[in-house]
């Protein structure tokens, strides 16, 4: 069982000794039971840190944001940052390190094992409680949660409200860490890995297209999935050209000759190009933190696209994102025995 005091003490110690400039963690949010990400810079603030099943966010995103801020700053503060990391967050840090986005000594990973369970899916909780929201969600033993409601407490088996990605999680304890709290734990046996992707593949071609056409059609192109993804750190995205902006003096000819991969308009075809491009750019990099799916305002099952590619990478190329820091990335390596039969 992870004691939140341990995390708080660790964070306070790091800050007191000046080992880190700040610690990324979770604090109690203002809306209901949900925790929210926070940055603490003083040892005295360490008491506000929490650890419970509502710590959904992938904090590696804020490491990327800090990196961007430091790069733009005239007086960059290069002291390391501490980060409270679940299994998936630590994989995200590992992928960023593998890509040399920052150096190993620039980050201090306070690993927290999810142990037998993981984090909740707020939508599943809302369904379970028929719209009522709990005031507190806590771990309860190895495979359950305790919800505190106005009327009293209630015990819920983890399987019922666990986030989809946690059901399929293969590495719940952070492999990359400087210090780790909680018992190490691997596969939890709630669902087989890649269960959702395999199930989706079971449908016929027509059914799959009908489903995805509906999803792409719904997409608002709000780019929340891109904003929340720790791996989507490109300063310029293919879908919105910032270095070739259209200005009043841009001639019609210039506009016509400019390379445009897809339009910004939220059409089915353009959204399809956007989502497929994002999926392929995340191939071998996605750590399955499920953030894209969580933030989607129209509930597009984006995780499926990514996990399908993770499944292919794992089964055909024996590659797991964030598994081995010294490994070459999926698309910059090859093996002689890679599949060749699909080629004429």
């Amino acid at each position: 069982m992870v004691k939140v005091e341990d995390i708080q003490q660790c964070a306070a110690g790091l800050l007191e000794k000046g080992q880190v400039k700040s610690v990324l963690g979770f604090r109690r949010g203002t809306a209901g039971a949900m925790a929210e990400p926070c940055t603490i810079t003083e040892a005295a603030e360490a008491g506000t840190l929490v650890w419970d099943p509502t710590c959904l966010n992938n904090l590696a995103l804020y490491l990327v944001k800090d990196r961007k801020q430091q790069a733009a700053s005239k007086t960059p503060d290069i002291r390391p940052i501490g980060i409270v990391a679940k299994g998936c967050d630590s994989r995200a840090v590992a992928v960023l390190l593998q890509e040399n986005y920052f150096k190993r000594e620039e980050v201090f990973v306070i690993g927290v094992s999810c142990e037998g369970t993981g984090v909740i899916d707020p939508k599943k909780v809302a369904t379970l409680l028929k719209g009522r929201s709990p005031s507190r969600v806590e771990f309860d033993g190895a495979d359950g949660f305790k919800l505190t409601l106005r009327g009293g407490e209630m015990q819920v088996p983890a399987r019922e409200i666990l986030a989809d990605r946690c059901l399929e999680c293969r590495a719940a304890s952070p492999a990359l860490n400087d210090v780790v709290f909680g018992e190490p734990s691997g596969e939890r046996g709630y669902a087989t890995p890649f269960h959702a992707a395999k199930e989706a593949l079971g449908a016929s071609e027509t059914e799959r297209w009908a489903a995805w056409e509906h999803h792409f059609d719904r997409c608002l192109r709000c780019f929340a999935c891109r904003s929340v993804c720790p791996m989507c750190y490109c300063p310029e995205c293919v879908v919105d050209s910032t270095s070739f902006v259209i200005e009043p003096q841009t001639s019609a000819e210039e506009k016509a000759n400019r390379i445009k991969w897809c339009e910004r308009s939220p059409n089915t075809s353009e959204s399809a190009v956007y989502h497929l491009t994002r999926a392929i750019h995340l191939a071998g990099r996605c750590v399955d933190c499920g953030e894209c799916e969580r933030v989607c305002p129209v509930n597009i099952p984006l995780r499926l696209l990514n996990t399908m590619l993770e499944m292919e990478a794992f089964e055909m190329f024996h590659y797991q994102a964030g598994h081995d820091l010294s490994q070459a990335s999926l698309l910059s390596s090859f093996r002689d025995e890679d599949p060749n039969s699909f080629i004429r």
């Binding site: 992707a197 989706a200 593949l201 071609e205 027509t206 059914e207 799959r208 297209w209 009908a210 489903a211 995805w212 056409e213 399809a272 497929l276 999926a279 392929i280 191939a283 499926l304 696209l305 399908m308 590619l309 292919e312 990478a313 055909m316 190329f317 999926l330 698309l331 910059s332 390596s333 090859f334 002689d336 890679d338 599949p339 060749n340 699909f342 080629i343 004429r344």
Partner: peptide, 27 residues
């Protein structure tokens, strides 16, 4: 070799969303 790995994933992705698998080929 890089192309083979990369485009294998593209092919799988296109199949996954329900595009006819015959439409994308490599040779």
């Amino acid at each position: 070799f890089f192309a083979r790995r990369k485009l294998y994933l593209v092919q799988k992705l296109l199949q996954f969303i329900g595009l006819e698998s015959d439409r994308f080929r490599m040779s």
